[in-house]
Design a binder for these strands. Structure first.
Lengths: 201, 201
DNA sequence: CGAGTGATTGACTTAGATCAATGACCGTGG
DNA sequence: CCACGGTCATTGATCTAAGTCAATCACTCG
């Protein structure tokens, strides 16, 4: 489902494992690309400096996440990546990926398919963030994330989910309790269950 | 920059031009993919039915736009596409694209690069929509869109831009006039000029 | 055991959505 | 050629949902 499946098994011997202390920079906006990374342990913040000079956090990548999948086709990175705690990461060297891409059509296909999937989920996120009410966003997220039985296992904390939905955690808490009061969902621990039958098509 | 460059010149002879009346459906969520489309004339609405049964508009595609670029790797479409006026579109048949993809590494590379670019701009949009204030969103949009001289030629109407930024058009008008009052931008017709030197790095 | 963080709820404020109105412009059909 | 219906651009008034500030409790971790 991620870059992972597509990278694993192809060129494991060319990858490079690196270690960064908290605050260390993996790369910054405009620096030459060396390739995409996978987070092994720790956490890496992807950010960009906006027009007014303020830093905007794009994403916090956690173990298992991959970043800069698109970097094999671009000459420079388009954001800053900073370790926010001591982290180990695996680098997939661009040159090796590229030559594999040219040599092996199966690899090319699965890499492109991975980019396409990533694109679709990112578009879904755009759709979600375009919704003006917290409730709609939560509903959209749950509907797209839930298994057939309506269960959603929340990865990470509720605060993380709030960030993903671009809400304050307070707003999310309130929305969830309200939805629970209305019988739209039920919660227990990390699991949220959608009770609307239609939502599961 | 778009799917265009990458498709043009490769397999023009296999494309199919089709015509749809207003209200006609190109494809709907879950139907088998036949390939990506290019809008020649008219306009096509991409939408999805959300959990509560309400239709959510993902995008309005206009002449020159392409849709469902990711469809060559997926078996079904993931949204509904409806012509909102009489429209002609060009279909790039999936099978032809796929075989070209396998046969021609250059094509594969430029197609994947196109997906990667698309992914980056979509991520930028996610970043933008994550900003809570109208002004920040406008700033972000302008900073990423402006030419070196700070000029931004707005494609389409201000209402379209408002939709892109997920603001009401009223909010956008007010924000723009305010930014102009503050000397942050200047406007004349379809052109907006950023006056903040830092914004242009 | 204290420090740090997540989960949760309350009170207050505000930015932006909503509703509404007006003038400019534009194509078009009589 | 002009009147009319439609849409865009713009501004005002009002309302509300979500952000902000703040406090409490539970939990984990060295």
């Amino acid at each position: 489902m991620s870059i992972e499946e597509c990278l694993h098994g192809f060129i494991p011997e060319t990858t490079v494992v690196q270690c960064f202390n908290a605050g260390a920079v993996l790369f910054h906006n405009g620096s030459r690309t060396v390739g995409p990374y996978e987070i092994v342990t720790g956490a890496v913040r992807l950010s960009r400096i906006d027009a007014s000079g303020k830093e905007v956090v794009l994403h916090i990548a956690r173990p298992g996440d991959h970043l800069a999948e698109a970097s094999i086709f671009s000459s420079v990175y388009h954001c800053d990546a900073t370790a926010i705690k001591k982290s180990t990461v695996r680098l997939y060297p661009k040159a090796a990926l590229l030559s594999e891409f040219e040599r092996n059509p199966d690899f090319a296909k699965s890499y492109a398919a991975m980019l396409a999937r990533e694109l679709m989920t990112t578009r879904a996120r755009v759709q979600r963030l375009g919704m003006h009410s917290a409730r709609e966003r939560v509903r959209h997220y749950l509907a797209l994330t839930a298994a057939k039985d309506g269960h959603v296992e929340v990865a990470g904390t509720i605060k993380d989910l709030a960030a993903e939905l671009s809400l304050t955690h307070e707003a999310l808490y309130r929305t969830l309790t309200q939805m629970e009061r209305d019988g739209e969902i039920s919660r227990s621990g990390r699991t949220i269950t959608l009770r609307d039958t239609r939502a599961l098509q």
